[in-house]
């Protein structure tokens, strides 16, 4: 294997390993086999890494999953809490529920109209945050 000439400037460049391009069927097969081994090993290594659960990538993935789950649960709890409070608000805050907007009482307007943009906003918020978590994950793995 030829080595790259070392230049006097002190630079180091990775050397080129010269391989003759094969032109007979047998050599092609040999290279195919070597290729197969090479990629199989890489695949094995990846599977090994994930299965061992101790590597950087696996730990980060678990962290990502946990964060996204927490985010989902948080948004869900927010929504459920708000929704469940609604019927009861009528008993504890009747004047507020009776407040008129566009001729309709607030208590009616909320489930009949206002809640929909609210749900949409929650959805958008979740997606935004989830995407950010994923980007952070990608950054750390690069």
């Amino acid at each position: 294997m030829a080595e790259g000439a070392e230049r006097p400037t002190g630079d180091w460049q990775p050397t080129e390993l010269a391989l003759e391009l094969a032109d007979t069927a047998g050599e092609i097969e040999a290279y195919l086999a070597e290729l197969g081994r090479f990629w199989a090993e890489e695949e094995q290594a990846l599977i090994q890494e994930v299965a061992e659960q101790t590597t950087y990538g696996a730990i980060l993935l678990e962290d990502l999953i946990r964060r996204q789950l927490r985010l989902g649960l948080g948004v869900a709890a927010l929504f459920i809490g708000g929704l469940f409070s609604l019927p009861i608000a009528y008993l504890f805050m009747p004047e507020l529920m009776g407040l008129r907007l566009f001729g309709l009482p607030l208590g009616w307007l909320i489930p009949a109209a206002i809640i929909y943009p609210f749900v949409w906003a929650l959805a958008w918020f979740y997606a935004h945050r989830a995407r950010r978590y994923e980007e952070e994950f990608r950054e750390l793995l690069r």
Partner: peptide, 21 residues
């Protein structure tokens, strides 16, 4: 009346939950 409004709210929120989980 009012109580029925939970149906459509639930239907819409169903998609929120679909998104979350």
């Amino acid at each position: 009346g009012y109580d029925v409004l939970w149906y459509p709210v639930g239907y819409a929120a169903g998609y929120l939950f679909l998104l979350l989980f």
